[in-house]
């Protein structure tokens, strides 16, 4: 395990997330090969790398949706339990935003944001909906509260999805390629919301292909390839002066360096 860089944000505190020798295989295919990483509170960490490099797999295992085959995940110093009933409690402290938004089509935007607090936290409906309204306003969609997802654009749906995750007041936000399924015009509105959240000091783990966003907003960037960590460091290092040749190649294919 590499020593945390003294420049790393939040490194003075206990790590929020730790992956220790995490492995995952799908049949003959190794998605994750002995991954060990640390994420500190208040950090914005971006996972980048080619498709199939394992970044989304790592994210989905973080809240136990796709459990790992080997290794351990520690959240706030405690190991992630295997039992569904126990890992559920951990999930309440993490927020996840999906590539396909996954809003519940039979509920309005407001109901989507409120459903977490109502069903999981047993909040009173009126209180939950009031707070949901505030969150929708925060992502700029207060006027769409009574719309069903089918009447919202992709960017609007994703913003509602972010509000839905925020409603649970999570300690970390996990983003699984949040803009990959969006039209270019709407990517910007989602990224602005994400930047605003980063500026608030939230801990965020973002799997993304949006390199300029990662360059501007991330505190730490981790480059994946074929289930292994190629390189990790501050964005200036990764994007301007990468130490690993393969990182340079990957970024140059995308027009960087």
């Amino acid at each position: 395990m590499t020593e945390p860089s003294p420049l790393r944000r939040g490194a003075t505190q206990r790590p929020l997330l730790e992956y220790k020798h995490v492995c995952k295989t799908f049949g003959a295919f190794t998605a994750l090969d002995d991954i060990s990483l640390t994420i500190y509170p208040g950090e914005v960490v971006c996972f980048i790398g080619p498709s199939g490099s394992g970044k989304s797999t790592l994210l989905r295992g973080t809240n136990g949706l796709d459990p790992f085959d080997g290794g351990e995940v520690f959240f706030d110093g405690q190991i992630l339990p295997r039992k569904q009933s126990e890992v559920r409690k951990i999930r309440q402290r993490m927020g996840m935003v999906f590539q396909n938004f996954e809003l519940f089509p039979h509920k309005t935007a407001l109901q989507n944001v409120a459903i977490g607090p109502i069903t999981v936290l047993n909040k009173d409906r009126a209180e939950a909906e009031q707070q949901a309204m505030a969150l929708l306003a925060k992502v700029g969609l207060a006027d769409k509260a009574d719309n069903y997802p089918v009447n919202l654009s992709g960017g609007q749906q994703q913003r509602v999805a972010i509000a839905r995750a925020l409603a649970m007041q999570p300690e970390v936000l996990l983003f699984d390629e949040p803009t990959s399924a969006l039209d270019p015009e709407t990517i910007g509105e989602v990224l602005s919301v994400m930047k605003a959240l980063a500026d608030e000091g939230r801990t965020m783990v973002i799997v993304t292909h949006e390199m300029s966003f990662a360059r501007r907003v991330a505190d730490w960037v981790i480059v994946f390839e074929r289930g292994k960590v190629l390189e990790e460091g501050p964005p200036e290092q990764i994007f301007e002066t990468p130490t690993v040749e393969r990182t340079k190649e990957f970024l140059s294919h995308l027009g960087w360096a």
Partner: peptide, 8 residues
């Protein structure tokens, strides 16, 4: 997955 991710 979305429901489980919320902790349901």
């Amino acid at each position: 997955n979305a429901g489980l991710a919320l902790g349901m």
